[in-house]
């Protein structure tokens, strides 16, 4: 589904990603871990199309289509979803209107009719129950005055509504209490299917107890330096990142 080859990217002459290779197939969940500053969020930003990043080398394709050539909205329409680490508050744009606009633009792109008001409301209700999102928040301005947990749950609601092929969750667990973490994880687990895939970017093994990954990758200094199964996450939790850094210092 997602194929990243030798991806190099940076911001203003500063090289951040230095040759990422990653294959994600439908039905898989991949976790990407790594110390601060290793390039995890940059990878998410580059894939989603944040404009201040410049790709200098390599490729990224989603089902064979070149992602890097597309505008951010087209990546989303092709089925890429980034759950933001810090969801943006937009006063004056209602959550419901935002969801409707997004969903209908994506449907139009895929050659489907826009949903009528009734079907849209039905769908919203269904999904908001699925991710245990407070109905009151749906009618408020987008993320305005939401708590950290509510913002993250809103990201998962959007994910549920838009049904992407590939979802990247950028530190969705940060700032969540245990209950919110459980709710967010349950939501993701319900949305998992053999047709979609997830990349979880996280610092903590805790999230991976709730959403069990098929693969765990360690990103360090702009490269994936180690890949394994969920046991690798446990090992990191126990030993920290120093041994990874040392190994790489030796290799370098």
């Amino acid at each position: 589904m997602l194929s990243i080859k030798n991806l190099h990217a940076g911001v203003e002459n500063k090289q951040i990603l230095k040759g990422i290779n990653l294959e994600v197939n439908a039905g898989e969940v991949h976790a990407i871990m790594g110390p601060n500053g290793s390039g995890k969020s940059s990878l998410a930003s580059v894939l989603a199309g944040r404009e201040n990043y410049e790709v200098t080398e390599g490729s990224a394709t989603l089902d064979g289509k070149d992602l890097l050539d597309m505008a951010p909205e087209d990546r989303a329409r092709e089925g890429l979803f980034l759950a933001f680490q810090y969801p943006i508050e937009i006063p004056g744009v209602s959550n419901i209107n935002f969801l409707k606009t997004a969903l209908n633009e994506i449907r139009t792109y895929r050659g489907l009719e826009p949903l009528d008001a009734k079907s849209f409301l039905k769908l919203t209700k269904e999904k908001q129950q699925l991710v245990e999102f407070d109905a009151k928040l749906v009618n408020r301005s987008l993320n305005e005055g939401f708590s950290g947990g509510e913002k993250k749950r809103n990201e998962i609601l959007q994910l549920a509504m838009l049904e992407p092929k590939l979802s990247i969750l950028d530190e969705t667990d940060s700032g969540l209490d245990i209950d919110a973490l459980r709710i967010v994880s349950n939501g993701v687990n319900k949305l998992r299917s053999k047709n979609n895939a997830f990349i979880l970017i996280t610092h903590y093994q805790r999230l991976l107890e709730y959403i069990v990954p098929d693969f765990v990758h360690v990103l360090y200094n702009g490269r994936i330096v180690k890949s394994g199964t969920k046991e690798l996450a446990l090992e990191l939790e126990e030993k920290g990142y120093d041994w990874i850094k040392e190994e790489n210092a030796v290799n370098a």
Binding site: F81, F84, P91, G92, F98
Partner: peptide, 28 residues
Amino acid sequence: NEESLFYLRARGIGEETARSLLVNAFAF
């Protein structure tokens, strides 16, 4: 706010529509 614009676009909303939404929000 370019961040707001990117957030909307990352949800599949075209740039033009996203700008309109944000201006409407400001004018709200």
